[in-house]
Write a protein that binds this DNA or RNA. Structure first.
Lengths: 195, 195
DNA sequence: ATAACGTTCGACCAGACTGGTCCACATAAA
DNA sequence: TTTATGTGGACCAGTCTGGTCGAACGTTAT
């Protein structure tokens, strides 16, 4: 799969020979459907952008004001999309950061747009007044974000090698909710303090 | 610098030609002092292990039982060592994970030993009874670790491009202590609750 | 049957780059 | 001058690169 090759080597060091070998097709096929390596790369970027948007970002409820709810939603939807196509997300890590490879202006714009959308989904419209009043809400915001990111990262590290789609995530979500409960107890206002 | 080349390309894809060019020396010199690329790599691994041990790990007070104190110490010492030689730490990220490159058994053992020491410094001898009694101490432990890691990671991302040694870290430590204060207020027992 | 056509393959190309060799040369000590 | 110690970089055989191209394939139309 070409996605995997670009994902693990970047544009420059990706090899068309390895791509065709892994795909089980002849060299001719690749250059019959794509005129060049660059064109293949652009096609994959476009495909990935569309995949991530339709299967992940568009499903997020941007009106959810509660930080933990919002982040939980993001984590869950990302996991689901990632289980559906892992390579796309690995590849996105490449082209979202890569400043070397020259892309058509229009495509580059789409990338920037998705970055901004992702940022907004993570930072905008959060009701920080739900946090304990004696704590700096911006700092609490970051602490919660880092905690959830940390869990997610550690979980993915624990699961390396396994096919995401084959894993029963139920126990992990259970564990995750345990962490969320602690975050709520520690950082949120107590119920009676509201209204 | 050879460290930088191996750090950013790994063993296989690192180029001796680029190394000598970056170092401003002739090809002959490299193979005059080292018989092969492999030997150069091994030398650098050995050098880095020694550097990290003497300038970082050995300075940590493993008897500090307070998690936040311990992690703060780790963060501070790592920053100092990293400012002294950034490349070594970038390179360590490569050879600590790299499972491909075959190293002499003795050297591989040293690497494993350092991994274990690092783990112990992070996880062992922590007094979890200082956390609020209504919270699962193991989960609190992880949440605090993820928070501190998160801040550190975000800070490094903010500072990419700048020479670490030239940065005045005072304001960042100030900011960092702000986060620590919140963690203490939220996760630790109150003073009067002790003894 | 045969011709035409859309596909598919992989041998092949020039060129870039690889780790490593080797020798000319510089400097300085003897 | 002779010898020893460094030092540079042209050069080597070999690998790998993105890309080309003619031959062969399976269908379908004639």
């Amino acid at each position: 799969m070409a996605l995997a090759e670009f994902a693990s080597h970047g544009y420059q060091k990706a090899s068309t020979n390895r791509i065709v070998k892994a795909a089980g097709i002849g060299k001719g096929m690749l250059f019959y459907y794509f005129t060049s390596k660059q064109e293949l790369y652009e096609y994959l970027v476009k495909y990935s952008l569309e995949f991530i948007r339709s299967r992940y970002l568009n499903k997020v409820d941007a009106d959810e004001p509660d930080l933990i709810e919002r982040l939980t939603q993001l984590a869950r939807l990302k996991m689901e999309a990632q289980a559906e196509n892992e390579e796309v997300f690995r590849f996105s890590g490449v082209f979202l950061l890569d400043g070397e490879t020259r892309l058509p202006e229009q495509l580059q714009e789409k990338i920037e747009l998705m970055k901004r959308d992702g940022y907004r989904l993570m930072y905008e419209g959060i009701d920080k007044s739900r946090f304990r009043k004696d704590l700096d809400p911006d700092k609490v915001f970051h602490l919660i974000r880092w905690s959830i990111d940390g869990y997610q990262q550690e979980l993915l590290a624990r699961l390396t090698g396994q096919k995401l789609a084959d894993i029963d995530f139920a126990p992990y979500w259970e564990e995750f909710y345990g962490y969320l409960a602690i975050l709520k107890t520690s950082f949120y206002q107590t119920e009676e303090g509201l209204g």
